[in-house]
């Protein structure tokens, strides 16, 4: 699978560490990313830990009537949020491969994560 070459730098890095269901962390983190982008900032997203599950295809609203986040992920490109990164180790540990993902994200290891954090003026962690 080909990963896009995206620079590990920008204005705002939003780190998403929670799975799509069970709490509002992911949704509220994505909201912050969308607002930053709407304010003209170059936004990158890093999916870490269980946050990588957000990228797995088919994350619908479910029986609780929550909105779900897959529709928000579809909107990222509209907001010019195309620098997506994911913790490759976490994805493998959770038993998923990159071809099961809704969006393409560049896998990063610990060293690249450090570079990513250093390359952004503002880091928001959810």
């Amino acid at each position: 699978m080909q990963y896009p070459t995206v620079p590990p730098a920008g204005d705002v890095l939003v780190i998403l560490r929670h799975s799509p269901h069970g709490s509002s962390w992911l949704r509220e983190g994505l909201d912050a990313a969308l607002v930053a982008a709407a304010f003209g900032q170059a936004v990158s997203l890093l999916f870490q830990s269980e946050g990588v599950l957000a990228l797995v295809k088919g994350q619908g609203p479910g029986p609780l009537g929550q909105k779900g986040t897959s529709a928000t992920l579809d909107m990222l490109a509209m907001y010019d949020i195309e620098s997506l990164f994911l913790d490759a180790v976490a994805l493998a540990r959770l038993g998923f491969s990159s071809d099961e993902l809704q969006l393409t994200a560049r896998p990063v290891d610990q060293a690249a994560t450090a570079e990513l954090i250093a390359g952004h003026r503002l880091v928001l962690t959810f």
Partner: peptide, 11 residues
């Protein structure tokens, strides 16, 4: 207030 204030404060 809106989330924009958070981004403003952060930057």
């Amino acid at each position: 207030t809106g989330l924009g204030q958070l981004i403003d404060a952060g930057l």
